[in-house]
């Protein structure tokens, strides 16, 4: 009897958590909270920038706790997003189960496109989980500086990164004289060694190098100009991160985009809404 009562209560909680009305309320609260976040974040971005380097737990313990007037919206955001994830999961799982039960009523392609919103919903959960694991578990190494010929070893591995050469592309045009001969594309040639295996790679801005599960990003470099300037010694500063969340949120974005395309196809080709122009 007690088990039955428990089951019944769980069923009620499950239904309440999966309510679409809850989705609406959560989305509205999220929109309001994020708008407050804009006000708090504006001109105080330095409070939040360390989140990317020290991770969520350390940030909460330092910047977060001691600046509550400006960070409270972020804590509320975390709570609302957690609730939204639970709500999305329950609601979508219920709908997918119902769709599977009634699958005989639809043709294959009609059924396929009916899954579109559910693909997007699951994708959202994957993206948010990816972000969370990124901020909780990413291992961020202190900025590593290398000069040509120098090398470094990745932690807990025998893998080495050797900075071979700096081969930048300069701005050649005369249109903006102040930019003449400034570096447009800093290209650092690396040799990545793991035991007997060797691989050459080019590290540049917006093009990180992946090696042994680590992402290697170009953070800064010198010199910035072909001639002149104070800092003439060649060097690269690298930001190196082992981020388990990246694959999740990348996969989530891909999945969400696929769901969005399916949704648009379903919307414009299958729904009985009269096609009209603007």
């Amino acid at each position: 009897m007690a088990v039955l009562i428990m089951m019944r209560r769980l069923f009620i909680i499950w239904n309440k958590l999966g309510s679409i009305h809850l989705t609406v309320i959560l989305c509205l609260l999220l929109a309001v909270d994020l708008t407050c976040g804009y006000v708090c974040l504006n001109r105080r971005t330095t409070l939040f920038a360390p989140l990317n380097d020290i991770g969520l737990a350390a940030w909460i313990d330092t910047y977060g706790r001691y600046n509550l007037a400006y960070t409270a919206w972020f804590f509320i955001l975390l709570g609302l997003l957690t609730l939204l994830c639970v709500n999305t999961f329950v609601c979508t799982t219920d709908h997918v189960a119902a769709l599977m039960r009634t699958r005989a009523l639809f043709s294959f392609h009609r059924l396929f496109f009916k899954f579109a919103p559910h693909v997007m919903h699951y994708a959202l959960i994957v993206i948010l989980s990816g972000y969370l694991s990124s901020y909780l578990f990413a291992q961020v190494l202190d900025t590593r500086t290398l000069v040509p010929g120098a090398s470094m070893t990745l932690p807990d591995t025998k893998a080495r990164i050797n900075f071979e050469d700096f081969d930048p592309v300069y701005y050649r045009s005369d249109r903006l004289p102040a930019f003449r001969d400034r570096v447009l594309r800093p290209r650092a040639r690396l040799l990545l060694t793991d035991g007997d295996r060797r691989r050459a790679a080019v590290l540049t801005a917006n093009r990180p190098v992946n090696f042994k599960g680590y992402g290697i990003f170009l953070k800064d470099f010198a010199p910035k100009e072909k001639e002149g300037g104070m800092d003439r010694r060649i060097r690269i500063d690298m930001s190196i991160r082992k981020d388990p969340g990246v694959r999740f949120y990348m996969a989530g974005m891909l999945l969400f985009t696929a769901g969005l395309v399916m949704y648009l196809v379903e919307w414009f080709f299958f729904r009985k809404v009269k096609k009209e122009a603007l």
Binding site: L30, A31, V32, L34, T35, G37, Y38, L41, N42, T45, F48, A49, L51, N52, G130, Y131, S134, A205, N206, P208, G215, F217, S239, R241, D243, G245, Y249
Partner: peptide, 18 residues
């Protein structure tokens, strides 16, 4: 560019999400 999912230097990220 930065190796992180969110760049906190621009507060416009919050209004886009809102």
């Amino acid at each position: 560019g930065w190796g992180t999912p969110v760049v906190w230097d621009d507060p416009a990220i919050t209004t886009a999400m809102a």
